[in-house]
């Protein structure tokens, strides 16, 4: 059975539903506090997939994800690097994405090229967004409709890059995995793009596509009845887009 480690710390708060999503998609899971890693009691390398879930790690007090990013870089970097070398997926969702970007794991490993900054609206917002699945190097969005829906719930989710040429580069490398779009699939302004991310970027991956991060929450779109308008929908299928995502990740490792 594929083993998932869900890394948490004080202020992580999407660990339980992320764990549930992984289990439904067929993996075995462990929610592990980072203190267990830094004290050597648990090893990240004993797992197949690393997920850093959403929340407000350490209250996001020095900027979203910053403190946990530093802790990872200073206290368990070696394990993380080996994990990546062994081509095992590293996934950051919402606060986890913020951690990956601030720990220089995305979009280019070891380089500080991007950030997630305050939403243009200046406030935390929870809303469902339409996402266009881009052609990317990541195998985790295969067999998905062109447009899917997940909710976002964050205050610091505006994706920015150090330079315009970097945008061209990650587009050319097929490192953009999801973009915020309107219902007909075009990138557009607020509220379709909920935070003002450049080029509507909602999620990115590294060059190989196995380290990925996204602001939207697939674990909150696991079932059809998670959709905000499910009472309007005709279909009776049990699962929704989020399930397919977790299924893809787990199948990739099995």
């Amino acid at each position: 059975m594929v083993k998932v480690i869900i890394l948490r710390t004080g202020g992580t708060n999407c660990d339980l539903e992320t764990e549930w999503a992984c289990q439904v998609a067929g993996a075995s899971t462990s929610r592990i506090h980072i203190s267990q890693i830094t004290t050597g009691r648990v090893k990240i390398l004993d797992f197949d997939i690393l997920i850093i879930p959403g929340g407000f790690s350490y209250g996001d007090d020095l900027g979203a994800g910053k403190v946990l990013a530093n802790e990872i870089m200073l206290k368990c970097w070696e394990q993380i690097e080996k994990f990546r070398e062994k081509q095992r997926p590293i996934i950051g969702i919402c606060n986890g994405f913020q951690v990956l970007v601030k720990a220089k794991m995305l979009p280019f490993w070891g380089k500080h090229t991007a950030s997630l900054v305050w939403n243009e609206s200046g406030r935390f917002e929870d809303r469902w967004v339409n996402l266009r699945v881009e052609k990317s190097t990541s195998p985790f969005f295969n067999n998905m409709p062109e447009i899917i829906r997940f909710p976002v719930a964050h205050a610091e989710g505006k994706f920015v890059l150090k330079s315009h040429s970097l945008l061209k580069k990650i587009e050319k490398n097929q490192q953009v995995i999801l973009r915020y779009v309107n219902p007909s699939g075009e990138t557009q302004g607020y509220p379709y793009n909920p935070n003002g991310s450049i080029a509507g970027i909602a999620g990115v991956c590294d060059e190989k596509g196995l380290v990925i991060g996204m602001m939207p929450h697939p674990e909150r779109a696991l079932l059809r009845i998670h959709l905000p308008d499910w009472t309007r929908l005709k279909g009776q299928e049990e699962f929704s887009y989020g399930y397919r995502f977790f299924k893809n990740v787990i199948e990739y490792c099995s």
Binding site: E17, R127, A153, L222, H226, P228
Partner: peptide, 22 residues
């Protein structure tokens, strides 16, 4: 209402806002 996270924990089935465009 949108400033509150109303679906963390993944239990919320009827959310504060639904319908077309929420």
């Amino acid at each position: 209402v949108r400033q509150y996270d109303h679906e963390v924990q993944g239990h919320t089935i009827i959310k504060p806002f639904g319908g077309i465009d929420g």
